[in-house]
Design a binder for these strands. Structure first.
Length: 947
DNA sequence: GATCGCAATTTTTTT
DNA sequence: AATTGCGATC
């Protein structure tokens, strides 16, 4: 399976030593992920006969992105039909959530609030959520304020739940209790609560406990230097319960998340947790990424830190050569303007310089260059300079979404409804959008329609389904403001430009749709239309404005050839041929400690163990590590610049770290200081060629279905990100689904249900998140689910013993960079005529058209995943339509079906790669497509748009 | 050269 | 609210 000679001696040692706990100290660029993937493959290799199967291994990563990378690498090393879907690879949070939902029936109906929705939720319940319980230490009569101090409250709740703390005072205990009770009442988790509850669950002899005890053999934790106390507790707990081998991987010099409580003491003192002979530490000191110049300069800097693993080193494997006086430059300028101009100049000069790596020699392109920032407020002036020099760039942190004309126009719809602006102003916002060919009559029609939604109209006032999302979608539909309306149809370059601009515009509309969705998921129907509108506008103005980054980036389906601007934190784990590090001033890097009201004015420092980790350390070791991370991102070229900021007194003096870099001048100092003699403009150039980026994508069935039906719908939903309007009836399908899941799990264990137990089960699983003030709907919806579950139980309970899998995760690696993911509702194995027959079952609610060929596609896809999991091919597929409760005959599955669906997926993915988002010609599909109202097809007379 | 007062300025982000 | 830089003052 894997060839051990592909690895360095120490990598090999890390892969093959499997008896002891292992600490792998992996320096930057040391092939960490490759080694971990190799280790997993080695453990699973049947030839080695270690008796390890995928469900015996858990691998924690820091981010989902890192998880996807590791998953792909592992699958490259492991063959087919090995049940890899049963190995968990993902974040700690992801694991805890899955563990809770699979083992505790109560948590199946919970959903997780991200930061923005959590804040909305807290503000909505300000009076009862415990915020008032916390007041200023210096003045107990001043409690945390609604809206203003919500972030502080979130921080405090996180700190007291994720840190090791001493006995909390009663007010904090009460606040925590109220906070968690409120979340629970609404079936929400926040991120900390997932960890807390999972840990709690492991304290007693639960299903989860015995599951871990009997299954877990190897626990891999990546980025171990960034672990915080509660995560550490969880890892320890898992180890104690299962007595598994612990493999921790990380680099203490790259601990940069300490303000979240992460602590590199865990990796530094790892060995002390275990008896002497049971633990081994292996350094991966060879850096395959960077030139000796880069490793030298980085080593020099970090050696000033005291709190680190002793006797560490990083050696360049010399995959890149080092040319002194050219590769690494440190230039100083008179002003920031001059500095930025010089950066733009440097970029233009270095484009086309020959660059050689494992894939041969090519000319450097824009996408090889990254500008790394300590803080975002540095970005604006740099962006300006790049624009002046016509340099393409992408950036993810400059908040200008709400300043774009399209978002101002979209927001205008709601300002108009709230009577902040009049009809003319709204119309003006839309007709002055760039490149638009909007029809004025349609626009006026859309505005006329809006007038029926004024919140002060008596008819509207009583409407509990006042959906801002629907108003937004209807406006686009009626005004016919489709993507094409912003493209100028000419045959020259202008056409291409307007096409691109229209795409960005719709991407931003999609983002706006998400803003509405985030708001309405928390506040749907909770107040009168007028107040709903008012809260939304306040949310946009006070919260959303600096929360949602602007559009056309972070787009997994499109990687433009452009300079990447990001923070040093975001660059963790990435690498670039060219790294530019501007603004090396005091107070910027190291950053100045932030002033202002903070959580420690409300939370006594004494209560928290290792409290100082949350604030900047006096030795500035944290910031030094940050610079270290930045330096080690570079493969070869590094430009450091400094200039006094004439407009800001804080940023005038050179960073103290420059002197530390300077101290390495032992005759081989690699930096050329300040003489600006070297210019790439004199170098020979070849054709710039962006590195072929292998974009791994994971597709689930919902996404595939969009592409199958209509690639343009995929674009609207997955590329642009439009969100469907919410309605009160939502939750019926999921409630029923969750009831069946519990029923099946317990039924499989031989449990028999009486009426009362069945009722309990239903009560526990029923959840209609958007149903509030209107009581009228509550009962009918409830009855509907109840009736269906009871009938289903009556018709099927005799068969529960034949269940083989419930809610089984599947994954199928279609080719190098396509991973298909899914979850099968139910798999039964029935013995008939002395032979076992496997049936894959999917439940569909009666609103969905279960007979469509698309459902058969879904089942075939699941059969593919099932084969990957078990090595067997299922015999039948079957759809069970909820509500009809008609037992349908299973359909025979043929081997050709699997081949057919594979080809179909391949074809679809090619659509995505070629960015060919064609609209379907099958008008029947348009008739059943809700998104058609965002699409120019809706003008077609043959197409009926559903109400 | 030390000290004081005053005005200007003030992060990082994943789950 | 805290930190910083800088000019005024001792």
């Amino acid at each position: 399976m894997i060839d051990l000679t592909d690895y360095s001696p120490n990598q090999r040692k890390a892969i093959t030593s499997i008896d002891k706990h292992l600490r792998i100290i992996a320096c930057a660029g040391s092939g960490k992920t490759t080694t971990v993937a190799g280790k997993v493959a080695y453990l699973l290799d049947p030839k080695n006969d270690f008796n390890v199967s995928p469900e015996n291994i858990i691998a924690f990563t820091f981010t989902e992105k890192a998880a996807a990378e590791l998953k792909t690498k592992v699958l490259e090393n492991v063959g087919h039909f090995r049940g890899m879907a049963n190995m968990y690879t993902g974040t700690i949070h992801g694991w805890c959530l899955k563990a809770l939902q699979e083992n505790e029936y109560l948590y199946q109906s919970y959903s997780v609030l991200d930061e923005i929705k959590l804040k909305l939720f807290i503000d909505k319940h300000y009076d009862s959520i415990g915020m008032k319980e916390i007041s200023k230490l210096s003045n107990p009569s001043v409690p945390l304020r609604r809206f203003v101090d919500t972030s502080l409250f979130v921080k405090i709740m996180d700190i007291i739940r994720e840190s090791d703390n001493n006995n909390l005072p009663t007010n904090l205990q009460l606040a925590k209790k109220k906070y968690e009770a409120k979340l629970k009442e609404n079936k929400f988790f926040d991120f900390s609560m997932i960890l807390e509850k999972a840990l709690e669950n492991l304290e007693s002899k639960t299903n989860l406990f015995s599951n871990i005890q009997s299954n877990l053999k190897y626990l891999i934790v990546d980025e171990y230097q960034d672990i915080n106390p509660i995560q550490n507790k969880l890892i320890q707990k898992l180890q104690h319960i299962s007595n598994c081998n612990l493999i921790v991987v990380g680099d203490d010099d790259q601990n940069i998340y300490q303000w979240r409580g992460s602590n590199n003491k865990y990796i530094i003192n790892f060995e002390k947790n275990f008896s002497e002979n049971s633990v081994q530490s292996i350094p991966l000191s060879e850096n395959y990424r960077s030139s000796p110049g880069i490793t030298k300069i980085a080593e020099t800097l970090i050696s000033n830190n005291k709190e680190r693993i002793p006797n560490k080193q990083m050696l360049s494997a010399e995959k890149q050569n080092f040319e002194r006086g050219k590769d690494i430059l440190y230039n100083r300028y008179e002003s920031v303007e001059e500095e930025n101009r010089a950066i733009a100049q440097y970029i233009n000069d270095i484009i086309g310089v020959p660059f050689t790596d494992g894939n041969g020699t090519r000319g450097l392109a824009f996408s090889d260059i990254s500008i790394l920032l300590r803080t975002w407020n540095k970005a604006e002036s740099i962006v300006q300079a790049l624009e002046d020099h016509n340099i393409p760039y992408i950036t993810a942190g400059v908040n200008q979404l709400f300043d774009t004309p399209e978002i101002e126009a979209a927001l205008g719809i709601f300002s108009f409804l709230y009577s902040d602006i009049d009809e003319e102003e709204l119309e003006l916002k839309w007709v002055s959008l760039p490149n638009n060919s909007l029809n004025k009559r349609n626009l006026q029609k859309a505005i006329e329609n809006l007038k029926e939604k004024f919140p002060n109209l008596p008819s509207v006032d009583k409407n509990w389904e006042y959906s801002l999302q629907k108003i937004f979608w209807d406006f686009i539909y009626t005004s016919e403001a489709f993507e094409e309306a912003f493209i100028i149809e000419t045959s020259n370059a202008l056409f291409e430009r307007t096409k691109e601009r229209a795409e960005i515009m719709f991407f931003n509309f999609g983002k706006f749709s998400q803003v509405i969705s985030d708001f309405e998921e928390i506040n749907f129907n909770s107040s009168s239309p007028r107040f709903h509108l008012f809260s939304f506008l306040s949310f946009v103005n006070y919260v959303a404005r600096d929360y949602y980054p602007e559009g056309w980036l972070n787009n997994p389906y499109k990687t433009p050839n452009a300079v990447q601007i990001m923070t040093i934190h975001q660059s963790k784990g990435l690498e670039f041929p060219v790294v530019i590090l501007p603004g090396l001033n005091k107070n910027y890097l190291p950053a100045k400690k932030r002033g202002g009201l903070n959580e420690w004015h409300f939370l006594d420092r004494q209560l928290i163990v290792d409290q100082q980790r949350y604030e900047r350390d006096p030795d500035k070791e944290d910031e030094r590590r940050l610079l270290y991370v930045a330096l080690t991102r570079s493969k070869k070229y590094l430009l450091l610049t400094q200039a006094p900021d004439l407009n800001n007194r804080l940023y005038k003096i050179e960073s103290e770290y420059i002197q530390e870099l300077n101290r390495a001048r032992d005759g081989v100092f690699p930096v050329m200081i300040s003489d600006k003699k070297f210019r790439f403009s004199n170098e020979t150039k070849i054709t710039p060629q962006p590195q072929e980026k292998v974009n791994n994508i994971a597709l689930d069935f919902t996404t595939l279905k969009d592409i199958f039906d209509c690639p343009y719908r995929f674009k609207l939903v997955s590329v642009f990100g439009f969100r469907y309007p919410l309605n009160q009836r939502m939750g019926v399908g999921r409630s029923f689904h969750n009831c069946l899941m519990e029923l099946h799990k317990r039924g499989k264990n031989g449990e028999i249900f009486n009426t009362e137990e069945l009722q309990d089960l239903i009560d526990r699983q029923i959840h209609f998140p958007y149903l509030t003030n209107s009581i009228k709907l509550q009962e009918p919806l409830r009855k509907k689910v109840e009736k269906n579950v009871i009938e289903y139980h009556k018709d099927n309970h005799y068969d529960f013993e034949h269940i083989e899998f419930i809610e089984q995760d599947i994954q199928y690696k279609l080719d190098e960079n396509i991973l298909v993911l899914g979850r099968i509702d139910l798999i039964k194995k029935i013995k008939s005529n002395g032979q076992h027959e496997t049936i894959i079952i999917e439940f569909k609610s009666d609103e969905e058209n279960a007979d469509l060929p698309i459902t058969r596609d879904q089942l075939k896809l699941y059969a593919l995943g099932h084969r990957e999991l078990t090595g067997e091919t299922a015999d039948y597929i079957m759809t069970y339509v909820i509500g009809e409760n008609k037992v349908k005959t299973p359909e025979k599955l043929y081997p050709e079906d699997l081949q057919e669906i594979e080809d179909k997926i391949r074809k679809s993915v090619n659509f995505i790669w070629s960015e060919n988002f064609l609209k379907t010609n099958d008008f029947k599909k348009c008739n059943s497509c809700y998104q058609v109202r965002l699409c120019s097809r809706s003008i077609n007379k043959e197409i009926k748009v559903r109400k």
